[in-house]
Design a protein around this nucleic acid. Structure first.
Lengths: 341, 341
DNA sequence: CTGAAAGCGCTTACAG
DNA sequence: CTGAAAGCGCTTACAG
């Protein structure tokens, strides 16, 4: 089946392509009669404008690029949802790419998106990535660009983040409010900013409550896994330091802690309370249900797209654009693992 | 920064656009000297062909569309990974859209992709979707089309599936092998093919083992949720029919069953064994660890893209194309919830 | 109110 | 080996 074109409609109606185009775009300088004839025939032929031609003329693709380290994480799929939905609402489609935490791949993918001439790029950096040339090339070409979650502070673009320090402080405060006196922290890897910030938040909360910081109560993950949680739980029981609350870097690890405590018959939260971070699905279906910090992933996606849209509009209208950083609110979700009876 | 064009290169070098184009595309009828001059200048100017113009000329976008019900599911993110990676390897980019299980949205999204003139579409249907007009319109326009996972048999397109009947049979056989005598099935919604096939597999396994089918042992989900699993677990205990094994449509629901059994002190698997389907992350971190059926999600994505590529090539070369169905192997993952002591 | 014309940036059949 | 020309399908400034 051949696709209908403006030309075909024009020929059939014995009018010019110009007039057909105007009629379909509701330009005011077309007679009602002509407009009706055109729209009727367009409908009949299932005419839709050839987007390749439109792109070429308007120099816009109404498509944006999205690069993330991995969708598999529950958090990222939430963000992806938000971006795609908000983009669709605004007439944009989203090309998705995954760097799999590889700087090499990430560079190639940025080049692909630039060649594709997407109208903008949203990105969460791979762990290896920082202020590299490929990112600079985006900014140099003045392609609208937004970073989210795993960002580089060195790159002057709009950003969407959460306040990890504050969120961690609130989590630890929650444990304190529940009556915990000796609170351990299972922290993340050394490098990532959010791991560092959550650790700082933990310390600040202790300080604020006049609890002395004790570095022997901090356990550093070698990997972010269920098994790592089991291991530290075991260690904590063996050491028997009187710990009565644990703030864990992320839910997956916290679930490992709970699994071991369950096995050993430790009463959670009455003997030891546990709070995680991220509000994964798994935290709601584990027994006891895990208290955690909710990151608004969908909203993060929405915010990221809207920042991008703002920049795309500014660039198009040749107006000055100033990068913004949006920090989204997190929320403590108190469930069984901290609500003492 | 203005983008370099063929015209600019031609002007600077005092040759024709035609020759520049040919030189860059390694046509044989260009002198070595000219070719070198062209490639050198192209490099210097960071020339990349304007993809909008290329699309218009070649009538190809080197972009495919992907519609899935939800990325949040661990299974779908695996498939998405596979599709994106394999597409990238072959020079294609992927526009992703989510139907959120809404037929309405799905229809709009198909229209968006058609208007966008993607080179092909890969899709997993929403639960409400079947042999609807929007799908037919894809086939009528001869847009290469591949279905995966949640497919409609009525639609004559290539498909990538698992053999749900066989997988379900194996799951139930596993329960029987573990000594279960009275096996219940918590089945999925009425419409989806995989829900139907798993139910058929359940019946076949019983039949094969000479166990009479008892429709009162089949529980039909109204929604695929944790809560639904809790509810049926409660009902099963109340009815007290002597059920000693349950095959559950998917892990999320199975986890709900386990949660309720844990709460009531039911010994799993010794009193009642439970097996799920899909091998979600959550099934490995729950106590007891959930036995399940592993679906090869990444491989499914790779296979789906390759089937699509095959069709895209055939269409382009105007060769006849015949739809194929690829069925991937599943595997029983036996964990604590079925391994009786 | 209508339409001829230029042009977006490329590709390719054709002539020389 | 090189290039003029047509054309992909649209948009829009301009003339009438």
């Amino acid at each position: 089946m051949r696709e209908a074109t403006l030309k075909e409609i024009a020929n059939r109606l014995g009018i010019s392509i110009t007039t057909v185009s105007k009629a379909l775009k509701n330009y005011p300088d077309v007679s009602d009669k002509t407009r009706k004839a055109v729209t009727a025939l367009a409908e009949e032929l299932h005419f839709t404008p050839n987007s390749f031609a439109v792109n070429l003329r308007t120099k816009e693709s109404k498509t944006i690029g999205l690069i993330i380290p991995e969708v598999v994480h529950h958090f990222f799929s939430g963000v992806v949802n938000g971006i795609i939905a908000e983009a669709e609402k605004n007439g944009y489609l989203v090309i998705m790419l995954q760097s799999n935490e590889s700087l090499e791949l990430e560079k190639k993918q940025v080049a692909l998106l630039i060649n594709k001439r997407v109208d903008g790029i949203i990105m969460s950096l791979s762990n290896e990535s920082n202020n590299d040339a490929h990112i600079k090339s985006i900014l140099e070409k003045e392609i609208p660009f937004v970073q989210f979650d795993k960002i580089s502070k060195l790159i002057p673009s709009s950003k969407v983040i959460i306040d990890d320090q504050k969120a961690a402080m609130e989590a630890v405060q929650h444990l304190i409010d529940m009556g915990c006196k000796k609170i351990a922290h299972i922290r993340g890897l050394d490098n990532p900013q959010n791991s560092i910030d959550r650790f700082i938040g933990y310390k600040k909360a202790l300080e604020k409550n006049g609890i002395p910081f004790d570095s022997s109560l901090v356990y550093s993950c070698k990997s972010i896994t269920f098994e790592q949680g089991v291991e530290f739980a075991k260690q904590i029981l063996e050491e028997d330091k009187g710990i009565d609350g644990i703030f864990v870097i992320t839910d997956l690890v916290a679930v490992g802690v709970l699994a071991h405590f369950n096995e050993k018959g430790i009463q959670v939260p009455n003997q030891i309370a546990v709070i995680g971070f991220s509000n994964w699905l798994v935290s709601q279906v584990i027994t006891p249900k895990l208290s955690t910090v909710d990151q608004p992933s969908y909203e993060m996606g929405v915010a990221a797209f809207n920042l991008l849209l703002e920049e795309m509009i500014c660039r198009k209208e040749q107006k000055p654009f100033e990068a913004k950083t949006v920090a989204l609110e997190t929320a403590i979700i108190a469930r069984e693992s901290t609500l003492k009876k």
